[in-house]
């Protein structure tokens, strides 16, 4: 009962904040609402007994991603005047509607299997086993990490001039 109430509260919070992120005019507030969205997703994880994932969600998404987005926004001008009213409004609407339809269709048509097992009490140790244990996922994770690092370095190289100075003008 309590879990159901919590789920609906979090779900409504998620959807409202997500819509506000997209529709709001003030980008700074939109970024803050994005943090709220991440936070409510963390709440959903908690309901699913994925406590480790929830904490990491807050740490990475609220504590790092949202804050870096805010940093980028703070360094720009006309934050309050920006908005969704640009020339890509109609195409964006169409494509997002298509995406929603596809998602809804796939969710409804998938035969979801409900595991008979009780959820793990402590997920952290199990995650550690999966990651570092025998036949763990450490290699794919490392490969993904190296890929992300390479893309970060690429971004730096793109904005850096040949003689080592930062471009500005």
């Amino acid at each position: 009962m309590g879990v159901t109430i919590a789920f609906w509260l979090l779900a409504i919070m998620c959807i409202i904040s997500a819509l506000a992120v997209v529709l709001g005019r003030n980008i700074f507030r939109a970024a803050l609402l994005l943090a709220l969205l991440f936070f409510s997703v963390a709440g959903l994880y908690i309901i699913l007994n994925a406590d480790f994932l929830a904490a990491v969600q807050v740490l990475i998404y609220v504590g790092a991603v949202a804050i870096l987005v805010l940093l980028a926004i703070m360094l720009t001008r006309d934050v309050t005047a920006g908005g969704a009213l640009n020339k890509f409004r109609l195409p964006a609407l169409i494509f997002s509607l298509l995406l929603v339809m596809a998602l809804v269709y796939s969710v409804l048509s998938t035969p979801w299997q409900i595991s008979p097992q009780a959820p793990l009490e402590t997920t952290t140790a199990a995650l550690g086993e999966k990651l570092f244990g025998e036949g763990g996922f450490i290699l794919p994770v490392e490969v993904a990490a190296v890929l992300l690092l390479a893309s970060a370095l690429g971004a730096i190289v793109l904005v850096k001039e040949k003689d080592g100075k930062w471009k500005s003008g």
């Binding site: 480790f52 904490a55 807050v58 740490l59 790092a64 805010l70 703070m74 952290t124």
Partner: peptide, 25 residues
């Protein structure tokens, strides 16, 4: 007594930066 106690502490305390950023902006 959370199983992820210390991780929770780090995650939660990282939120306070958000408050500082909000105040600053």
């Amino acid at each position: 007594d959370l199983d992820i106690g210390i991780l929770y502490v780090i995650a939660v305390s990282s939120i306070s930066t958000l408050g500082v950023v909000m105040a600053g902006w």
